[in-house]
């Protein structure tokens, strides 16, 4: 089981636009490694005849009719937003585009 390297954590941090300090990279690399290691034990238990699966239920084609259901009011929708302006979610300056 290959460990999570600090380079991988740095890459993820870059994608997420997170600034991590050098010691944080080591810290998170260790933590992520533990988590992934724990989940990876499932693969050890699974036999050759168990196919990889993305959903526990053997269902397909669960769909709904194209019928409008009531939405939240804008007030409800925005009630959890840290900041709002012009009835819109206000977010800090977007970085790293263009």
């Amino acid at each position: 089981m290959p460990g999570i390297t600090r380079e991988e954590v740095a890459h993820l941090a870059r994608l997420a636009r997170l600034e991590l300090k050098s010691e944080e990279l080591d810290h998170f690399a260790g933590q992520l490694d533990d988590i992934i290691g724990a989940v990876a034990r499932v693969a050890e238990v699974a036999d050759q005849d168990v196919p990889p699966t993305s959903h526990p239920l053997p269902l397909t084609n669960v769909m709904r009719a194209d019928e409008v259901r009531p939405s939240l009011t804008p007030e409800q929708a925005l009630s959890g937003a840290p900041a709002q302006e012009q009835q819109r979610f206000k977010v800090p300056q977007i970085l790293g585009e263009d």
Partner: peptide, 15 residues
């Protein structure tokens, strides 16, 4: 089931 109607008030068609 949110409506896709154009021209609605901001954030009035969300869930």
């Amino acid at each position: 089931g949110c409506s896709t109607e154009l021209g609605a008030d901001p954030n009035s068609q969300t869930c």
